[in-house]
Protein backbone atom coordinates (compact mmCIF):
# COMPACT_ATOMS: atom_id res chain seq x y z
CA UNK A 1 0.00 0.00 0.00
CA UNK A 2 1.12 3.56 -0.62
CA UNK A 3 2.44 5.62 2.23
CA UNK A 4 0.63 8.91 2.81
CA UNK A 5 3.07 9.99 5.49
CA UNK A 6 6.62 8.74 5.64
CA UNK A 7 8.91 9.99 8.38
CA UNK A 8 12.40 8.57 8.42
CA UNK A 9 15.07 9.16 11.06
CA UNK A 10 13.95 12.70 11.78
CA UNK A 11 15.63 14.73 14.50
CA UNK A 12 14.78 18.21 15.71
CA UNK A 13 16.17 20.41 18.46
CA UNK A 14 15.07 23.83 19.64
CA UNK A 15 18.35 25.28 20.80
CA UNK A 16 19.87 22.87 23.31
CA UNK A 17 16.55 21.11 23.86
CA UNK A 18 16.26 17.97 21.77
CA UNK A 19 12.61 17.48 20.85
CA UNK A 20 12.73 14.59 18.40
CA UNK A 21 15.47 12.00 18.02
CA UNK A 22 15.71 9.70 14.98
CA UNK A 23 11.95 9.29 14.73
CA UNK A 24 10.51 7.13 11.97
CA UNK A 25 6.85 6.54 11.18
CA UNK A 26 4.78 5.39 8.23
CA UNK A 27 1.06 5.99 7.85
CA UNK A 28 -0.62 4.35 4.89
CA UNK A 29 -3.71 5.49 3.01
CA UNK A 30 -6.88 4.82 5.00
CA UNK A 31 -4.98 3.92 8.15
CA UNK A 32 -5.72 5.54 11.52
CA UNK A 33 -2.73 5.92 13.81
CA UNK A 34 -2.82 7.30 17.34
CA UNK A 35 0.20 9.30 18.42
CA UNK A 36 0.61 9.13 22.18
CA UNK A 37 3.05 10.74 24.54
CA UNK A 38 3.38 13.01 27.56
CA UNK A 39 3.19 16.77 27.14
CA UNK A 40 6.44 17.81 25.53
CA UNK A 41 7.14 14.35 24.10
CA UNK A 42 7.31 15.86 20.60
CA UNK A 43 3.87 15.08 19.15
CA UNK A 44 3.04 18.62 18.02
CA UNK A 45 6.58 19.16 16.72
CA UNK A 46 6.32 16.00 14.62
CA UNK A 47 3.10 17.33 13.06
CA UNK A 48 4.60 20.74 12.37
CA UNK A 49 7.57 19.10 10.70
CA UNK A 50 5.25 17.02 8.52
CA UNK A 51 3.43 20.20 7.49
CA UNK A 52 6.69 21.93 6.66
CA UNK A 53 5.98 24.67 9.20
CA UNK A 54 9.34 24.11 10.84
CA UNK A 55 12.34 22.46 9.18
CA UNK A 56 13.83 19.22 10.46
CA UNK A 57 17.47 19.19 11.55
CA UNK A 58 18.07 15.82 9.88
CA UNK A 59 16.13 12.97 8.34
CA UNK A 60 13.40 13.23 5.73
CA UNK A 61 9.62 13.49 5.66
CA UNK A 62 7.34 13.00 2.70
CA UNK A 63 3.61 13.61 2.46
CA UNK A 64 1.74 11.95 -0.38
CA UNK A 65 5.08 11.20 -1.99
CA UNK A 66 6.27 14.85 -1.96
CA UNK A 67 8.84 16.41 0.36
CA UNK A 68 7.27 18.03 3.44
CA UNK A 69 6.74 21.75 2.92
CA UNK A 70 6.57 21.54 -0.88
CA UNK A 71 3.47 22.81 -2.62
CA UNK A 72 2.29 19.27 -3.41
CA UNK A 73 2.83 18.12 0.19
CA UNK A 74 0.92 21.09 1.57
CA UNK A 75 -1.98 20.40 -0.73
CA UNK A 76 -2.02 16.75 0.31
CA UNK A 77 -2.20 17.46 4.05
CA UNK A 78 -5.01 18.74 6.25
CA UNK A 79 -4.34 19.95 9.78
CA UNK A 80 -6.33 20.59 12.93
CA UNK A 81 -4.10 22.42 15.43
CA UNK A 82 -4.46 22.04 19.17
CA UNK A 83 -6.68 24.64 20.90
CA UNK A 84 -7.59 26.30 17.63
CA UNK A 85 -9.53 29.56 17.70
CA UNK A 86 -10.68 31.72 14.82
CA UNK A 87 -11.11 35.44 14.51
CA UNK A 88 -14.24 36.21 16.52
CA UNK A 89 -15.47 38.87 14.09
CA UNK A 90 -15.89 36.52 11.11
CA UNK A 91 -18.87 34.24 10.59
CA UNK A 92 -18.44 30.51 10.09
CA UNK A 93 -19.35 30.81 6.43
CA UNK A 94 -16.78 33.55 5.86
CA UNK A 95 -14.04 31.68 7.72
CA UNK A 96 -14.61 28.44 5.84
CA UNK A 97 -14.87 30.46 2.60
CA UNK A 98 -11.41 31.87 3.31
CA UNK A 99 -9.99 28.37 3.78
CA UNK A 100 -11.69 27.21 0.57
CA UNK A 101 -10.04 30.04 -1.35
CA UNK A 102 -6.66 29.23 0.21
CA UNK A 103 -7.11 25.59 -0.75
CA UNK A 104 -8.09 26.54 -4.28
CA UNK A 105 -11.47 24.85 -3.86
CA UNK A 106 -14.73 26.36 -5.07
CA UNK A 107 -16.67 28.15 -2.35
CA UNK A 108 -19.74 26.30 -3.55
CA UNK A 109 -18.74 23.41 -1.27
CA UNK A 110 -18.90 25.58 1.88
CA UNK A 111 -22.63 25.28 2.71
CA UNK A 112 -22.55 21.50 2.25
CA UNK A 113 -19.54 21.11 4.53
CA UNK A 114 -21.09 23.34 7.21
CA UNK A 115 -24.19 21.16 7.13
CA UNK A 116 -22.03 18.04 7.24
CA UNK A 117 -20.47 19.10 10.58
CA UNK A 118 -23.78 20.35 11.95
CA UNK A 119 -23.07 24.07 11.69
CA UNK A 120 -25.62 24.89 9.00
CA UNK A 121 -27.80 26.93 11.35
CA UNK A 122 -24.93 28.84 12.93
CA UNK A 123 -23.13 29.55 9.65
CA UNK A 124 -23.98 33.23 9.55
CA UNK A 125 -23.33 34.00 13.20
CA UNK A 126 -20.00 35.37 14.32
CA UNK A 127 -17.56 32.75 15.57
CA UNK A 128 -17.08 34.86 18.70
CA UNK A 129 -20.53 33.71 19.83
CA UNK A 130 -19.83 30.00 19.26
CA UNK A 131 -19.06 27.26 21.77
CA UNK A 132 -15.75 25.43 21.77
CA UNK A 133 -17.34 22.34 20.27
CA UNK A 134 -18.68 24.40 17.37
CA UNK A 135 -15.27 25.92 16.71
CA UNK A 136 -13.71 22.48 16.71
CA UNK A 137 -16.31 21.30 14.21
CA UNK A 138 -15.42 24.24 11.99
CA UNK A 139 -11.81 23.11 12.29
CA UNK A 140 -12.92 19.68 11.12
CA UNK A 141 -14.89 21.16 8.23
CA UNK A 142 -11.80 22.89 6.87
CA UNK A 143 -10.01 19.50 6.91
CA UNK A 144 -12.66 18.11 4.59
CA UNK A 145 -11.86 20.67 1.87
CA UNK A 146 -10.27 19.06 -1.15
CA UNK A 147 -9.95 15.44 0.04
CA UNK A 148 -6.55 15.36 1.69
CA UNK A 149 -4.26 12.33 1.49
CA UNK A 150 -3.18 12.93 5.09
CA UNK A 151 -5.05 14.35 8.07
CA UNK A 152 -3.13 15.48 11.16
CA UNK A 153 -5.23 16.11 14.28
CA UNK A 154 -3.58 17.52 17.40
CA UNK A 155 -5.60 16.84 20.57
CA UNK A 156 -8.87 17.17 18.65
CA UNK A 157 -11.19 16.20 21.50
CA UNK A 158 -9.73 18.09 24.46
CA UNK A 159 -12.48 20.10 26.11
CA UNK A 160 -15.28 18.54 24.06
CA UNK A 161 -18.39 16.92 25.48
CA UNK A 162 -18.98 13.21 24.79
CA UNK A 163 -21.47 13.80 21.98
CA UNK A 164 -19.12 16.18 20.18
CA UNK A 165 -16.32 13.64 20.61
CA UNK A 166 -18.42 10.92 19.11
CA UNK A 167 -19.35 13.11 16.13
CA UNK A 168 -15.76 14.14 15.63
CA UNK A 169 -14.56 10.55 15.48
CA UNK A 170 -17.41 9.66 13.14
CA UNK A 171 -16.06 12.22 10.67
CA UNK A 172 -12.50 11.02 11.17
CA UNK A 173 -13.62 7.46 10.46
CA UNK A 174 -15.39 8.65 7.36
CA UNK A 175 -12.23 10.37 6.13
CA UNK A 176 -10.22 7.20 6.73
CA UNK A 177 -12.92 5.25 4.90
CA UNK A 178 -12.35 7.47 1.86
CA UNK A 179 -8.64 6.68 1.92
CA UNK A 180 -7.25 9.53 3.99
CA UNK A 181 -4.39 8.55 6.27
CA UNK A 182 -5.15 9.85 9.76
CA UNK A 183 -2.69 10.65 12.55
CA UNK A 184 -4.32 11.68 15.84
CA UNK A 185 -2.31 12.99 18.77
CA UNK A 186 -4.31 12.62 21.95
CA UNK A 187 -4.36 12.13 25.67
CA UNK A 188 -7.79 10.59 25.69
CA UNK A 189 -6.60 6.98 25.66
CA UNK A 190 -9.89 5.21 26.29
CA UNK A 191 -11.60 6.81 23.32
CA UNK A 192 -8.67 6.00 21.03
CA UNK A 193 -8.60 2.32 21.94
CA UNK A 194 -11.36 1.31 19.58
CA UNK A 195 -10.72 3.97 16.99
CA UNK A 196 -7.23 3.37 15.74
CA UNK A 197 -5.46 0.74 13.72
CA UNK A 198 -2.08 1.40 15.22
CA UNK A 199 -0.58 3.08 18.26
CA UNK A 200 2.64 5.09 18.11
CA UNK A 201 4.18 6.16 21.41
CA UNK A 202 6.70 8.97 21.72
CA UNK A 203 8.80 9.18 24.84
CA UNK A 204 11.10 12.12 25.25
CA UNK A 205 11.42 12.52 21.51
CA UNK A 206 12.01 8.86 20.71
CA UNK A 207 9.52 6.47 19.12
CA UNK A 208 9.35 3.70 21.71
CA UNK A 209 6.47 1.71 20.24
CA UNK A 210 4.49 1.59 17.03
CA UNK A 211 2.19 -1.30 16.32
CA UNK A 212 -1.37 -2.61 16.51
CA UNK A 213 -2.79 -2.57 20.02
CA UNK A 214 -3.04 -6.38 20.26
CA UNK A 215 0.59 -6.82 19.30
CA UNK A 216 1.78 -4.14 21.70
CA UNK A 217 -0.20 -5.91 24.39
CA UNK A 218 1.51 -9.24 23.64
CA UNK A 219 4.90 -7.65 23.42
CA UNK A 220 4.51 -5.82 26.69
CA UNK A 221 3.53 -9.08 28.43
CA UNK A 222 1.50 -7.15 30.98
CA UNK A 223 -0.40 -9.26 33.51
CA UNK A 224 -4.03 -10.12 33.02
CA UNK A 225 -6.26 -9.04 35.90
CA UNK A 226 -8.64 -11.68 37.29
CA UNK A 227 -11.23 -10.48 39.73
CA UNK A 228 -12.95 -13.25 41.65
CA UNK A 229 -16.00 -12.61 43.80
CA UNK A 230 -16.60 -15.03 46.66
CA UNK A 231 -20.00 -16.44 47.49
CA UNK A 232 -21.37 -15.39 50.85
CA UNK A 233 -18.82 -14.07 53.35
CA UNK A 234 -16.03 -16.38 52.29
CA UNK A 235 -13.55 -13.96 50.71
CA UNK A 236 -10.85 -14.82 53.27
CA UNK A 237 -11.32 -18.49 52.49
CA UNK A 238 -11.03 -17.74 48.76
CA UNK A 239 -7.86 -15.72 49.21
CA UNK A 240 -6.30 -18.58 51.18
CA UNK A 241 -6.94 -20.93 48.26
CA UNK A 242 -5.88 -18.82 45.25
CA UNK A 243 -3.70 -16.04 46.68
CA UNK A 244 -3.91 -12.49 45.33
CA UNK A 245 -5.11 -9.38 47.10
CA UNK A 246 -8.38 -8.69 48.89
CA UNK A 247 -10.20 -5.85 47.19
CA UNK A 248 -13.10 -5.47 49.60
CA UNK A 249 -15.21 -7.71 51.75
CA UNK A 250 -16.21 -9.96 48.87
CA UNK A 251 -13.56 -9.96 46.09
CA UNK A 252 -10.00 -11.06 45.43
CA UNK A 253 -7.82 -9.80 42.60
CA UNK A 254 -5.07 -11.84 40.97
CA UNK A 255 -2.53 -10.62 38.43
CA UNK A 256 -1.14 -13.35 36.23
CA UNK A 257 1.06 -13.43 33.13
CA UNK A 258 -0.86 -14.02 29.88
CA UNK A 259 0.76 -17.47 29.54
CA UNK A 260 -0.74 -18.68 32.83
CA UNK A 261 -4.17 -17.24 32.28
CA UNK A 262 -5.90 -20.45 31.19
CA UNK A 263 -4.35 -22.52 33.98
CA UNK A 264 -5.49 -20.03 36.61
CA UNK A 265 -8.99 -19.93 35.13
CA UNK A 266 -9.20 -23.69 35.32
CA UNK A 267 -8.06 -23.58 38.93
CA UNK A 268 -10.74 -21.00 39.81
CA UNK A 269 -13.44 -22.95 37.97
CA UNK A 270 -12.47 -25.94 40.11
CA UNK A 271 -13.40 -24.11 43.30
CA UNK A 272 -17.07 -24.65 42.53
CA UNK A 273 -19.46 -23.12 45.10
CA UNK A 274 -16.85 -20.83 46.61
CA UNK A 275 -16.91 -18.54 43.57
CA UNK A 276 -19.88 -16.29 42.78
CA UNK A 277 -18.46 -14.40 39.81
CA UNK A 278 -15.32 -13.88 37.73
CA UNK A 279 -14.11 -10.90 35.64
CA UNK A 280 -11.15 -11.05 33.27
CA UNK A 281 -9.60 -7.70 32.32
CA UNK A 282 -6.98 -7.43 29.58
CA UNK A 283 -4.39 -4.71 30.09
CA UNK A 284 -5.97 -1.47 28.85
CA UNK A 285 -4.39 0.99 26.47
CA UNK A 286 -3.64 3.05 29.54
CA UNK A 287 -1.66 0.17 31.08
CA UNK A 288 0.19 -0.37 27.82
CA UNK A 289 0.87 3.32 27.43
CA UNK A 290 2.25 3.47 30.96
CA UNK A 291 4.44 0.49 30.23
CA UNK A 292 6.00 2.04 27.12
CA UNK A 293 6.11 5.65 28.20
CA UNK A 294 7.73 4.80 31.48
CA UNK A 295 5.56 5.56 34.45
CA UNK A 296 3.08 8.30 35.14
CA UNK A 297 -0.22 8.56 33.32
CA UNK A 298 -0.49 10.99 30.38
Amino acid sequence: MDSALSVSAVSKAYGPRRVLHEVSLEVRAGERVALLGHNGAGKTTLMKLALGLVPADSGSISVGGAAAGSAAAREAAAYLPEALAFHPALTGREQLGLFARLAGVSRAVVPGLLDRVGLGDAADRRIGTWSKGMRQRLGLAQMLLGRPALALLDEPTSGLDPVSRYELYAIVDEMAGQGTAVLVASHALTELEARTDRIAILREGRMVACDALARLRDEAGLPVRLRVTARGERAADLQARIGGARLNGASVEILCPPSQKMARLAEIAGLGGLVADLDVAQPSLEDIYRHYSGGASP
Binding site: R74, P81, A83, A85
Partner: peptide, 13 residues
Amino acid sequence: ERGSLALLLSYRL
Protein backbone atom coordinates in the same frame (compact mmCIF):
# COMPACT_ATOMS: atom_id res chain seq x y z
CA GLU B 1 -2.08 32.96 19.93
CA ARG B 2 -5.27 31.70 18.31
CA GLY B 3 -3.39 28.79 16.75
CA SER B 4 -4.59 29.93 13.36
CA LEU B 5 -1.13 30.96 12.10
CA ALA B 6 -0.02 27.32 11.88
CA LEU B 7 -3.31 26.40 10.24
CA LEU B 8 -3.14 29.22 7.66
CA LEU B 9 0.45 28.34 6.80
CA SER B 10 -0.41 24.65 6.48
CA TYR B 11 -2.26 25.69 3.35
CA ARG B 12 -0.21 26.71 0.34
CA LEU B 13 -0.17 30.26 1.64
